[in-house]
């Protein structure tokens, strides 16, 4: 599966469009990580535990999007966008969406 965030796949031609595909996940933070992050919060800087959490969540969201696209018979997704929303205190939603296409 090829993913790009431009309208085309550079170097290839799109032969069929399948429309919008999306994948999302809502993640809550882990107690232990939260505790470490609270400590880290005093001195500032990167919160590594949270970065990992977001990376995992984004990976899962794009995996779901890819699963949806391959169900349709697509072999690439163009114009991929990511958005993050905090749904409630301590939980974040990660959404990945794009246009499923078949390219040659």
């Amino acid at each position: 599966m090829t993913l790009t965030n431009v309208e085309s796949i550079p170097g290839k031609t799109i032969v069929e469009h399948y429309g919008l595909v999306q994948g999302s996940t809502i993640r809550a933070k882990h107690f232990g990580r939260d505790f470490m992050a609270t400590l880290k919060n005093i001195v500032g800087g990167e919160l590594k535990g949270y970065t990992e959490l977001m990376v995992e969540a984004r990976q899962q969201a794009s995996d779901r999007m890819i699963a949806q696209a391959s169900e349709l018979g697509a072999n690439a997704i163009v114009n991929v966008r990511f958005t993050t929303t905090s749904v409630s205190q301590g939980a974040a939603e990660m959404l990945a969406y794009g246009t499923a296409v078949r390219c040659e």
């Binding site: 796949i9 500032g44 977001m54």
Partner: peptide, 28 residues
Amino acid sequence: GKQLPGLPEINSAELVVGSVVVSIDYFK
């Protein structure tokens, strides 16, 4: 930009992501 005129022919393309979570320190 999405494309630049005069770019060489493109062989492969893939999506890449980089992210970081930052917080501000207590003093600031």
